[in-house]
Design a protein around this nucleic acid. Structure first.
Lengths: 139, 139
DNA sequence: TGAGGACTCATACTAAAGTACCAAAACCAC
DNA sequence: GTGGTTTTGGTACTTTAGTATGAGTCCTCA
């Protein structure tokens, strides 16, 4: 915001300076009038580019694509551990691999998964991945 | 492309016209000099915006995020049918469901999958999804 | 025309995945 | 500290997934 004010201030000053300069060049003789006009044109050309770029950047920041919906997770009643396992599933790991990575037994993973699937309305782990992605609860 | 040429042509004409106009206003008396300069400034301002917008749109079209790498598919030696089944897998379908959707037996699906996994360097269908996504061969 | 690739299907098997039910710690809140 | 949730783990079972092997059909391209 401060930057914007500074830039606009500088531009206004530059504009006024150019106005005065162009007027001066007219009174002393119209030798540099083309240059003055060209300079003004160029400056405003870049102002246009700058402003447009800024507004577009703002737009991009407003709509982030790969955002995870944390509210949705708690809304579905998914616990921390269940979510952790969901991520591992989406990474293509087997129950055994998840179990060893989290230092628990495979039975525990199976239990968690069995509790997780109804919450995601899924019957298979592949379906769970698909559902979780379209709900934007995993990247 | 035609549009671009037309726009730029129009802009050059407008620019020259303004140059002449500004010169004329100086010789007849500098009443409208500020207006002329302001007009030039304004026009180039919008030119800047227009060009910037165009270049950014181009940029977005050049780098689409969810692009599938078709070359990679043939590079890995994945056939049409195998790819078709890969898509179904990523949609969370079971072998039985895929079989009925494609009007073939479950055995066929299993055979295709068994041939597909080595090509993707995957051991499980979830891993196949993960690998296929990071290779950008599925959306 | 025949060799090779793609698609199909089957059997038989092993290995995961998933369900159901139970139960004991552990943790958190009231 | 009592009650609810989470996390953990087990047994027993069914279902799905995946492998291995073999074989028939179809199509294409040399």
């Amino acid at each position: 915001m401060k930057k914007t004010v500074f830039v606009f201030g500088a531009l206004i000053v530059a504009l006024l300076t150019l106005f005065q300069l162009s007027k001066y060049s007219i009174t002393t003789g119209n030798l540099g009038i083309e240059f003055a006009i060209a300079a003004i044109a160029l400056i405003f050309f870049f102002i246009g580019i700058y402003i447009n770029k800024k507004s577009l950047h703002k737009k991009q920041a407003q709509i982030p694509i790969g955002e995870i919906d944390e509210d949705k997770i708690s809304e579905l009643g998914i616990s921390k551990r269940e979510y952790e396992i969901l991520i591992k599933i989406s990474e293509g790991l087997s129950n055994k691999e998840i179990a060893s990575q989290l230092f628990v037994s495979e039975s525990t993973i199976k239990t968690h998964i069995s509790n997780l699937f109804p919450k995601l309305d899924a019957k298979r782990r592949t379906q769970a991945i698909q559902r979780a992605k379209e709900m934007r609860i995993i990247p």
